[in-house]
């Protein structure tokens, strides 16, 4: 299963490069040195206002997601197949919502 998913990830990522292109002129601009880039980022009020709620949302999703297999097994007493169905249902629900 690990290999199957790995191959799927491999094929789709390499395929995506066919749709990607880089604009060389963008690489002409000099980029900020690391120290200054970090300073500009963490002293940027708009960024800080954004990043705290964004981090909390990420945290919630990651924590929730990691708990799902335990939840379906020990609380719902579901089999592995039923867990797959459960996750599949979430995935299918999410697809039309991507258009919102």
């Amino acid at each position: 299963m690990g290999i199957a998913f790995g191959v799927l990830g491999l094929v789709t990522m390499y395929a995506s490069l066919y749709g990607a292109k880089e604009r060389p002129e963008l690489a002409q601009e000099a980029s900020l040195p690391l120290g200054q880039a970090l300073k500009e980022t963490y002293l940027n009020k708009s960024f800080l206002t954004y990043v705290i709620p964004a981090m909390l949302i990420q945290y919630t999703f990651v924590a929730l997601q990691a708990v799902i297999p335990f939840y379906t097994k020990y609380v719902l007493n579901a089999s592995e197949f039923e867990t797959t169905v459960f996750l599949g249902a979430m995935f299918v629900t999410a697809i039309p919502l991507a258009a919102v």
């Binding site: 990830g9 789709t12 395929a15 995506s16 066919y18 990607a20």
Partner: peptide, 11 residues
């Protein structure tokens, strides 16, 4: 085709 990379990253 470019967006397939998102599928890869997600999976």
């Amino acid at each position: 085709i470019y967006s397939l990379g998102s599928f890869s990253a997600s999976i």
